[in-house]
Write a protein that binds this DNA or RNA. Structure first.
Lengths: 221, 221
DNA sequence: CTCGTGGATACTGTATACAGTATTCAGCCT
DNA sequence: AGGCTGAATACTGTATACAGTATCCACGAG
């Protein structure tokens, strides 16, 4: 039999709405002042309120949206304090992935990472968003290589939220190129087999990102 | 004016259903063979399907339930492999919290932790579940003290899932008392101010838990 | 008896209808 | 004019109705 099973892939309308909302937030089509109302969205998408409601509640539970006091949902704001906490969480998650990769000691896997990094860092005339995506792609590759689904899930949660918070809009003014050049070094540290060093390298890398982020905020203020 | 604002606390039926389901899972009233069907549950709770559906989908998204192929939801199973990943994730999250606490160096906070630990460890004739709850209470206190809401959120996710997986049923046979005696030492390590040591202590503590867990599994097999 | 077929059944997903509540605004009273 | 009051409005939350699809079972053909 040459036919393949049709992976019917249980796609719900709510998922579609969710994805569209996330996309719209990333594309800055939804700003902090917009009010998202179930009925309005449903009318606009020409579907019923039920799946819209489901998507909105999901985004609320994820901390991306919160109920406005006058009804409707708004983008959640993030403070400088919370930004620090987000980076601390990143360090925990990604540092652990680095430890795991170091312990595993799989040279082929590391080589694959090197190739991907070189490909991904090769941006011509990148915008802030290109930078954000490239950076996430690279970091996510480390996580996938570590092969821990819970850590990966948390990674996605953190970066998803960063996206939603328009966290990287603030880096607009910062020196982007500075931040995208040292990922190969991370692989090198992992290759040495020193777990503590690998963790430190990742922590430092993320810390640098945080400082770059802060200078971005301060410069734009 | 002596009146306080009534915090109307937007409690949805879906939240209620969610809590009841979680409780029922913890109490082993819902087992791996039970099929949770929206209509049945709604009838039983005497409410409509809508909030029931919402709660079920939430639990599905959290990885606690998954759709049975013949309709309805079932408890998700966890493999030994996944169990390891769960403990690795714990180590990442709680280890980072330990680092933060160490860096903060707040003796009063540590003293509060010591008091709580002594109170919580003082169990008379504990069941496995008592142990689970006490252990979680103590570990959660460290997380709260660290004061990072994202790490705390992930902690809750991990432990919630552990609960759902009936992860600790396997410890039934293991030596419980062995595992609940060394939390004060964790505080002591934090108090030394050595961040690396604090992280290692937590990692080791969690690793021990994992091994205890495995012996529990193997003994009951 | 076995296998295939058709229909009943059991569920989910989506739409719509209904109810309750907070917010807003216009009109009245002072 | 300013502030209180009450109705209209704008939303959400919940219930119910409808549609589609996968599963299961019984029946008939080979």
């Amino acid at each position: 039999m040459a036919l393949h099973s049709i992976t019917t892939q249980r796609r719900r309308l709510a998922d579609e709405v969710y994805d569209q909302l996330v996309q719209a937030i990333m594309d800055r089509e939804i700003g902090p002042d917009d009010r998202l109302v179930q009925e309005k969205l449903a009318a606009e998408l020409d579907i019923s309120r039920t799946p819209v409601r489901e998507a909105l509640l999901r985004l609320e539970k994820e901390g991306v949206l919160h109920l406005a006091n006058s009804g409707g949902f708004r983008l959640a704001k993030i403070s400088e304090e919370e930004t620090l906490e987000l980076y601390q969480a990143r360090a925990a998650i990604e540092g652990q992935a680095a430890r795991i990769l170091t312990a595993r000691n799989d040279p082929e896997e590391l080589e694959r990472l090197r190739v991907l990094i070189r490909q991904t860092e090769d941006l011509k005339d990148p915008t802030t968003r290109d930078y954000f995506i490239a950076n996430r792609t690279i970091h996510r590759a480390f996580m996938e290589a570590a092969g821990n689904r819970f850590l990966l899930e948390m990674f996605d949660m953190i970066w998803g939220r960063a996206m939603a918070f328009h966290l990287f809009a603030a880096i607009e003014n910062a020196d982007i190129s500075k931040s995208l050049g040292n990922h190969i070094e991370l692989v090198d540290v992992i290759a040495t087999g020193d777990r503590g060093a690998a963790l430190e390298a990742f922590t430092d890398h993320i810390q640098e990102g945080f400082e770059l982020h802060l200078t971005g905020i301060r410069r734009s203020a």
